[in-house]
Amino acid sequence: MSASRELILSRVRAALRDALVVPEVPRDYRPAGRPVDLDVLVDRLVDYKATVHRIREDEIASTVEGLVSGAVLVPSGLPQEWRPAGALVDDGLAPDRIAAAAAVLTAAAVAVAETGTIVLDASPDQGRRIITLLPDVHIIVLRPEQVVAAVPDAVARLDARRPLTWISGPSATSDIELNRVEGVHGPRNLHVLLLG
């Protein structure tokens, strides 16, 4: 194993014998810190077939109850007042029980307005990655202050050491004649509860 390590590194060094100049990277593209437009986020989410609900924080539980009938899975760190009646708390549930849930309700880490992307970072209010993968409906609560303008803002805010899932609309494929079709392996329905 380490023999191949030395072999590859020595090959690469030999290949670079002409002493490449390390170029300066021009970073004059639009930087982080531009103003956030929530309407852009909503437009992009809807364009990629997510359903957006603009509600108050005290309306979360009732909105969820109106969206799904059946067990709603929640991560253990989700605020109590957000949880619908009879919520199923993930305390290390087996995959088949997670898959059997009608929906999963989580918070989020960051959202990118320009691309309609929501990022989960597996914090206690978002849970381990499996719980947002197996149920067919994913409901995400988003606070306005979590929304950033563009990708550079999100990269700056996120912690690389956490497991990250970037979500832009429901599961989709472009594999049949390059047309986007929603609904393959991940949740086929994405609801975003944007608090205001």
Partner: peptide
């Protein structure tokens, strides 16, 4: 504008 899913991981996360 963005693909539906991107997964990023760093080594192993206990329990996840």
């Amino acid at each position: 504008r963005m693909n539906p899913y991107t997964t990023m991981w760093t080594g192993v996360t206990p329990g996840d």
